[in-house]
């Protein structure tokens, strides 16, 4: 029995040591990666005039780099694929610790913004932050279904079933984040239309707008604008944004609604995300809107 336990202990130790070794490149990249492409926490020195916050729909819709060049303003897209409001709140908090408040703050406000869902959404996107509780996400993530204590305490184990994600994080491959302008639309493979998100499971309505207040509350000196990225015609017919329009009227916050624009299906990669043609159209429309605002000083 003793020999068995000794051998089993040695094997477990060797396996755990290997898991630690596999963790090193992830943590190394987390701390040191600070080139043109930056990670979530590398947000210092941006000081954007205009910040857009949202999920993958903001990410896919807006080319903040192009918009910055065309308007002459420093525009930053603080978006993240699959991240929800409570996580974006944390991200905004991190951004504001290192940068001044923007003059204009565009908050994505549409039914596809996953306000209060608690199921684990795109967990793979923030695996690199979990071990050692990077960015203080642990308390935040406990609220989500699929939370495991071992994600935080056992190295590498959280990459179970996700070898591709491990390679991306270990090699420091970027997640499409531009150092100066934040997330940028994907450039490759966007013409291919993906399978449609089933209409019958899509609840295209918003009941609570408390999450708008939570984001808005962090930027008291910014001018707030609600923005609705484009949406496919199939979803457009189903959408119900009564709560958002009511909020806009009651709080005197402008609503920049591109959801009502009837874009052709050829401008979407699926029902909720535009492709590169849709992104060009959206970016041009955003540029025109910002120019119309005419409230900013030319730099």
């Amino acid at each position: 029995m003793r020999r068995f336990f000794v051998q089993f202990g040695q094997f477990s130790g060797a396996f755990l040591a290997l898991l630690f070794l596999l963790e090193i490149p992830i943590q190394w990249n987390y701390k040191t990666q600070n080139a043109d492409m930056a990670d979530w926490q590398k947000l210092e020195g941006i000081n954007a005039d205009i910040v857009f916050i949202g999920n993958s729909r903001t990410w896919h819709s807006l080319d903040a780099d192009t918009a910055s060049q065309k308007t002459g303003h420093n525009i930053y897209a603080l978006a993240q694929d699959g991240w929800q409001v409570r996580l974006l709140n944390q991200k905004l908090k991190t951004y504001l610790k290192q940068n001044r408040q923007p003059e204009f703050f565009f908050i994505q406000a549409d039914p596809a913004f996953l306000g209060t869902r608690t199921n684990w959404y795109s967990k793979s996107n923030f695996l690199k932050y979990l071990f050692l509780d990077r960015e203080g996400l642990q308390d935040l993530m406990k609220a989500y279904e699929g939370y495991h204590w071992w994600d935080w305490s056992i190295p590498t184990i959280r990459y179970a079933g996700l070898p591709g994600r491990y390679i991306i994080d270990a090699t420091g491959s970027n997640m499409g984040i531009h150092r100066r302008h934040g997330t940028l639309p994907e450039s490759a493979g966007v013409q291919e239309r993906l399978p449609a998100i089933p209409m019958d499971v899509w609840k295209c309505s918003v009941r609570s707008t408390a999450w708008i207040d939570s984001l808005k509350g962090q930027c008291p000196s910014s001018k707030i604008i609600l923005w609705h990225p484009p949406i496919s015609q199939a979803l457009s017919e189903k959408r119900d944004i009564t709560a958002i329009t009511s909020y806009s009227i009651e709080h005197n916050v402008p609503l920049f609604d591109l959801g009502k624009a009837s874009l052709a299906d050829s401008m979407f990669k699926d029902n909720t995300h535009v492709n590169k043609f849709g992104s060009i159209w959206t970016t041009d429309t955003v540029v025109a809107f910002i120019q119309e605002l005419n409230a900013l000083q030319q730099p």
Partner: peptide, 15 residues
């Protein structure tokens, strides 16, 4: 062989 198998199992494990 043991450790390689354990690592492959880990990375193949579905949630």
């Amino acid at each position: 062989v043991y450790i390689a198998m354990a690592i492959i199992i880990l990375f193949s494990w579905s949630d």
